[in-house]
Design a protein around this nucleic acid. Structure first.
Length: 267
DNA sequence: ACGTGAACCTGCCGGC
DNA sequence: TGCCGGCAGGTTCACG
């Protein structure tokens, strides 16, 4: 569940359970370079839980705990660890007796304790573009970025252009803006439309707690509702809600890509 | 320097 | 039923 709306949902759910707590013990269940210097978190208290793009950032004072869920990472805060979590990687035990865990079958997720603000070992975070729902996401910068001769899909997946978009929301944003994902060098008017769509789409998805696949539930037993609003993602063969043309699935920049041939022209 | 493709893992689903 | 290939919401590394 790891694009901006899903990570923001995790942040909002976990923050009240984590902020003000002290990490008493760090239990790393698997030796993996994806987990770095975690023992340094022991004895630290969590002052704030923030999000940057798809990263979670726990403020530990002079240190900072960076978290990324990868493709399959799930986090929760529980009184007792459920035995059905078959891929527990890391558990942070808290001073109130609760446990903050990362369960991650594919091990693409990352956790690292760093000096606050020192993202040298995390290039994506170090070069993260503007937050799409924030003030620093400027339409002028975005228009310039989208004028480059790369597929729109590649540019939107690039975290330096705008933070937090992934495969689902890129396809959905292209559909809503009527832009073919393989199109290159967008004119300014089209890029402006896409800019507006991205902000609206992500705000709506956050309000719906993101998109959940299959039967996933997070640590609180909740799940996202945005999947009911998906218009192209995972809808290959189904009629477009706008024009009725069947949605097509292709591969673009190495990712499964969904679009409506009727509404999205000009590849 | 920049861009694309493969690699990194495990689980699940559909087809034979 | 069982095996195999293909695919999955991301990032990073190796190449051209």
């Amino acid at each position: 569940m790891p694009e901006l709306p899903e990570v923001e949902t995790v942040r909002r759910d976990l923050a009240p359970l984590l902020v003000g707590r002290t990490i008493t013990r760090v239990e790393q269940r698997l030796e993996d370079p994806h987990y770095q210097d975690l023992a340094r978190a022991a004895g630290r208290s969590i002052r704030e839980l923030r999000r940057r793009g798809k990263y979670l950032l726990a403020d530990l004072g002079e240190l900072e705990l960076l978290g990324h869920l990868g493709m399959s990472g799930r986090m929760g805060v529980v009184r007792a660890l459920p035995p059905e979590l078959r891929h527990l990687r890391v558990v942070f035990h808290l001073d109130d007796g609760a446990a903050w865990y990362l369960n991650d079958p594919r091990r693409f997720g990352r956790l690292a304790v760093v000096i606050t603000g020192d993202y040298a070992g995390h290039p994506t975070l170090a070069h993260m573009g503007p937050e799409p729902l924030g003030e620093d996401f400027r339409v002028g910068d975005f228009v310039r970025a989208m004028a480059r001769p790369r597929p729109v899909k590649a540019l939107l997946l690039d975290q330096q252009v705008v933070a937090g978009l992934g495969n689902i929301y890129v396809d959905e944003a292209c559909f809503r803006a009527g832009v073919h994902p393989a199109r290159r060098g967008l004119p300014a008017a089209t890029a402006r439309r896409l800019y507006r769509v991205i902000r609206e789409l992500l705000a709506l998805a956050v309000a719906h707690r993101g998109t959940t696949f299959r039967d996933f539930r997070d640590g609180q037993g909740a799940h996202g509702a945005y999947q009911e609003l998906l218009q192209v993602y995972e809808r290959a063969g189904q009629p477009c809600g706008r024009c009725g043309t069947p949605i097509v699935k292709t591969v673009l920049v190495g990712r499964g890509t969904h679009h409506c041939p009727g509404c999205q022209r000009g590849s």
